[in-house]
């Protein structure tokens, strides 16, 4: 639930709304500024860095999960 909570906290939405299908297109709270904050929060929480292409890809919770898994990050540690 770590990823879900991080997304919820950054977007200031209830964690119950966070699922893999939640995307930047259908979440009013997911603004461009919050996208920047989310990338930064993810890098800090998972001790990793995203390159430009990875950052561009991450426009849904599912996409975020896929990018993190591809980097070998343990998601719910």
């Amino acid at each position: 639930m770590k990823l879900e909570k991080l997304v919820a906290d950054t977007l200031a939405i209830p964690v119950e709304r966070v699922s893999d299908s939640l995307s930047i297109d259908d979440c009013d709270e997911w603004t461009s500024m919050r996208q920047v904050a989310l990338i930064s929060a993810l890098e800090s929480a998972y001790a990793t860095e995203f390159d430009i292409m990875e950052s561009i890809e991450m426009d849904s919770v599912g996409a975020i999960r896929e990018v993190l898994e591809a980097k070998g990050v343990e998601l719910d540690g």
């Binding site: 995307s23 930047i24 297109d25 997911w30 603004t31 461009s32 996208q35 950052s55 561009i56 890809e57 426009d59 996409a63």
Partner: peptide
């Protein structure tokens, strides 16, 4: 396009 928040769609 509806906004630029999704850079994936922009690019």
């Amino acid at each position: 396009l509806n906004g630029v928040a999704s850079l994936k769609r922009v690019f």
